[in-house]
């Protein structure tokens, strides 16, 4: 009895309720509550916000023109003028990294949006129609997924030629089956739901059912997947550029900044390798952290 009383007496109702998030309703309070519960996710969100902000305001933030060659200051060490030093052409590394964020973001968002859209259409059709279309889709996606993402993108850019739109397309294509599979699985489950049957019973067309009843209910997993994929698209772009098949000169891409300097200057001017490396890692790390937290919050299977 004594033990029980002691155990019960120590309950602080307000504290327990606060922990459960009872007063975290509405707008900012809810965001703050979630941020406290998912600290890493919040960190990811901050990194992503900085990343996006940098990309948007690159012109204002950059202290030098990223393309201006200044042979007098080539390979300068980090200093008050050049915070991250200069490269072999005397271009300011800090400014190039800031502008590089733009490229990374454009490629990341562009390819995710393109691959996501096509993936949704294919997945929805495949899951909803089933039959031969579904069979063909499944086999094609098996083949696509058997090839490494990077190799596929390499072949694509090699064939299409390196340019920003081509890089986006090359990265988007391997994304299609990944997205389509998730959407297809969700569609198959939703198709059996009584509310879809109810829609059929009022004589609704299949296309309208797919768009009005099935698609909106797949949005949560889609957002989670898109966030998770954003990181890997940024990484793929960096890898492609590193291999010389990404964004062409003279635009600053983090991947190519690495490849230009890695072999030659890693000993003599390590800042040329370190800073682009940190930029890539941070961007990918940030999106992944945020994606994980988003999955925890949005995915009903993870929720109690």
């Amino acid at each position: 009895m004594l033990v029980a009383e002691r155990r019960m007496a120590t309950i602080d109702y307000d504290l327990e309720l606060k922990r459960a998030g009872a007063n975290a309703t509405g707008g900012w309070r809810r965001v703050l509550f979630l941020a406290r519960r998912h600290v890493l996710g919040a960190a990811g969100l901050i990194i992503m916000t900085v990343f996006v902000f940098t990309a948007i305001f690159a012109n204002v933030l950059a202290r030098f023109d990223p393309l201006t060659v200044d042979a007098a200051h080539a390979l300068a060490r980090p200093s008050a003028a050049h915070w991250m030093g200069t490269d072999s052409f005397g271009r300011d590394v800090f400014s190039r990294i800031i502008h590089g964020a733009r490229i990374s973001l454009a490629v990341g968002l562009g390819s995710t949006a393109l691959g996501g859209t096509i993936g949704v259409i294919v997945g929805l059709t495949s899951g909803y129609l089933s039959g031969w279309f579904d069979l063909v889709f499944q086999r094609v996606s098996d083949i696509l997924q058997a090839l490494p993402l990077l190799v596929l993108a390499l072949v694509m850019t090699a064939a299409l030629g390196p340019s920003l739109p081509n890089v986006i397309i090359a990265i988007a294509i391997p994304l299609i089956p990944t997205v389509a599979r998730v959407i297809r699985a969700n569609t198959l489950a939703l198709r059996e739901q009584p509310f879809v049957e109810a829609a059929k019973s009022i004589g609704m067309s299949e296309v309208r059912i797919a768009v009005r009843h099935v698609l909106p209910n797949t949005l949560a997993p889609l957002i989670v997947l898109a966030t998770a994929q954003l990181g890997s698209t940024i990484l793929t772009e960096a890898s492609l550029s590193f291999l010389g098949l990404g964004i062409p000169e003279p635009y600053p891409s983090w991947g190519r900044m690495l490849s230009e300097s890695a072999a030659e200057y890693v000993r003599t001017a390590p800042w040329l390798v370190i800073f682009p490396g940190i930029a890539i890692s941070l961007a990918v790390f940030g999106t992944n952290l945020f994606g994980d937290a988003l999955r925890d919050i949005l995915d009903p299977r993870q929720r109690g």
């Binding site: 739901q193 509310f195 109810a198 209910n217």
Partner: peptide, 27 residues
Amino acid sequence: RRSMQIVFQDPFASLNPRMTAGDIVGE
């Protein structure tokens, strides 16, 4: 289809969670 309708067992699964009640009935 207009002359025959159905009411299902599970009132939770038979309504699209992303639509308002008014839209569901008006559909």
